[in-house]
């Protein structure tokens, strides 16, 4: 487990299509000193490529999954719910913690997400200070407080 803490490993996969949101999120992460090991995906397909170690990420190994995926719901190509579904139905990726970070407060989205096995659901606050607080707490929790899944949790297909 201590191995997972190595500097080269990606700790957060941030899936965000909107450049402004992306910049604000990265700004917040930087302010909280959490921006070092952040991978960025700009749509659902990129996120899936990363998580399933294919395309540009074929060198990656399933066992070195991110400590948390911050997933927007409204995404180009493949939407967030579909990404979540694929991640949570595949035994190789099932154990990766996924946090939905979205503008939507629709009940339907929340229900779908939780039924697919999401680990947390957070609505992006409009107020930047509150957003920064959320990002800070997310980082603190998932990177520090939480015990990440052991490697054996990522079973090969």
């Amino acid at each position: 487990m201590s191995k997972n803490m190595s500097k080269n490993e990606v700790e957060i996969l941030l899936v965000e299509d909107n450049p402004d949101d992306l910049e604000l999120a990265l700004h917040a992460l930087r302010q909280e000193k959490l921006a070092n090991q952040v991978a960025i995906a700009r749509d659902g397909e990129e996120a899936l490529d990363f998580l399933f170690c294919r395309g540009p990420h074929r060198e990656r190994s399933f066992v070195n999954g991110p400590k948390v995926v911050l997933l927007d719901l409204k995404l180009p190509k493949v939407d967030g719910i579909e990404v979540l579904r694929q991640v949570k139905t595949d035994p190789r990726t099932k154990a990766i913690p996924v946090v939905i970070l979205t503008a939507s407060r629709e009940e339907k989205d929340m229900v779908n997400s939780y039924q697919l096995g999401v680990n947390a659901y957070i609505q992006k606050p409009v107020n930047f200070e509150q957003f920064r607080e959320v990002v800070k707490q997310l980082g603190l929790f998932w990177l520090v407080v939480n015990q990440s899944p052991p490697q054996s949790a990522f079973k090969p297909a």
């Binding site: 402004d20 700004h27 409204k74 503008a103 939507s104 629709e106 992006k124 930047f128 957003f131």
Partner: peptide, 22 residues
């Protein structure tokens, strides 16, 4: 429509607020 309002209408607000704050 409401979905898109809830999602998209708020995004620019966040950006305005975020960048103002920064």
């Amino acid at each position: 429509f409401t979905y898109s309002v809830s999602h998209d209408l708020r995004a620019p607000l966040r950006h305005v607020d975020g960048f103002s704050k920064i």
